[in-house]
């Protein structure tokens, strides 16, 4: 760290932008300036350098204290970033960097958990309502130019099951609770949550699947959750229930899901995530009955995503300056 004129340390922050992610996710000087204005106490103590698609990465990482980014040559960090103390990842599901054996000694890794929550809450309500109202089936009928009334129950009479009650799952739980639904949940350690009527640990998956009318997948992708929902789990679900995946595509066995949607075991599904992404043009999922596809855009607010990301980053910079523990720390062993 360099000594500033006032004798207090200046933290060098390197922002690494990936142009493939598009403008919604760009952390540009304008958005940094706006964040500095919101956090003027921190602004005086940082200097910010920018790299795009790694064009300046090798030069700027050499004396950076903090790295903010999503895709970068992470394996090179121990060698190239001697001053690095903290890496902030600008998304929530960070499995693309697993295993985390590349993290240099003494470096803390944080992610964007919580940043999606307000938008996820809205999408959670929307998805619950679409499943309850049989919207996937109605959209499929329209494709076939069929007009058939589809009567359905009232959402407040239904039960939501949230697999993975973290920040996103908690936001979905809160949305479902506000709609008057009964809410079941699963999370590691089965710690209670204000919006969840009954919480289990991972051993409660079968019970949750058997009682839920709408199942939301909100887990991180880890070796334990890869393929978590296969033919057996789909068969455990209530006949006519619906599935919403805002976790990662690889959490669900796609072929088993297609079979369950085609047979009527599930009344509908809303998928926001796929394996791989983008979903190939020739994927059979596009034409699978009773399925609505949102191309991984459910939870990222077009205007607020980067400002909320930077509010989290600046709060952590404030903590770093004060020598306090950071928020949203990724546990390298768990991978989230």
């Amino acid at each position: 760290m360099a000594d500033a004129a006032n004798g207090r340390p200046t933290i060098k922050v390197l922002v690494e932008n990936d142009s493939n992610l598009g403008p919604v996710f760009a952390i540009d000087p304008e958005r940094i300036a706006a964040a500095k204005a919101r956090h003027s106490d921190v602004a005086a103590h940082i200097s910010v350098a920018y790299s795009k698609d790694c064009d300046r990465f090798a030069d700027e990482i050499a004396d950076a204290d903090v790295l903010i980014g999503w895709v970068f040559p992470h394996a090179e960090l121990p060698r190239r970033a001697p001053r690095l103390r903290w890496v902030h990842l600008t998304g929530a599901g960070v499995e693309h960097l697993a295993p985390f054996d590349w993290v240099p000694q003494g470096v803390v890794v944080t992610n964007n958990r919580g940043v999606h929550a307000p938008k996820t809450r809205e999408f959670g309500a929307l998805a619950a309502l679409m499943i309850a109202n049989r919207m996937p089936q109605i959209a499929h009928q329209q494709r076939n130019q069929e007009w058939v009334p589809v009567y359905s129950g009232t959402v407040e009479d239904l039960t939501a099951g949230i697999v993975g009650v973290g920040q996103m799952g908690g936001a979905v739980a809160s949305a479902c609770k506000d709609l008057g639904m009964r809410v079941l949940g699963i999370r590691r350690g089965a710690a209670p949550h204000d919006s969840v009527d009954r919480m289990w640990g991972m051993d409660g998956l079968d019970a949750l699947l058997g009682e839920s009318d709408v199942v939301f997948l909100c887990t991180p992708l880890t070796p334990q959750t890869r393929g978590l929902i296969g033919a057996r789990q789909l068969a455990r679900m209530k006949r006519g229930a619906g599935l919403v995946n805002i976790a990662r595509g690889a959490v669900v066995d796609t072929e088993a899901l297609r079979a369950a949607l085609t047979s009527g075991q599930l009344s509908g599904a809303v998928l926001d995530v796929f394996d791989p992404e983008p979903l190939p043009e020739d994927s059979p999922l596009w034409d699978t009955p009773n399925l609505i596809i949102t191309p991984h855009c459910s939870s990222d607010d077009a205007e607020a995503y980067v400002p909320r990301t930077l509010d989290l980053v600046f709060e952590n910079l404030r903590r770093l300056l004060a020598g306090k523990d950071l928020l949203a720390v990724v546990d390298p062993r768990l991978g989230y």
Partner: peptide
């Protein structure tokens, strides 16, 4: 877009 097999992300702002 789904009917046309088109992957086209549309990011919304909160309601």
């Amino acid at each position: 877009h789904q009917r046309r097999h088109e992957w086209h992300q549309l990011f919304a702002t909160g309601i």
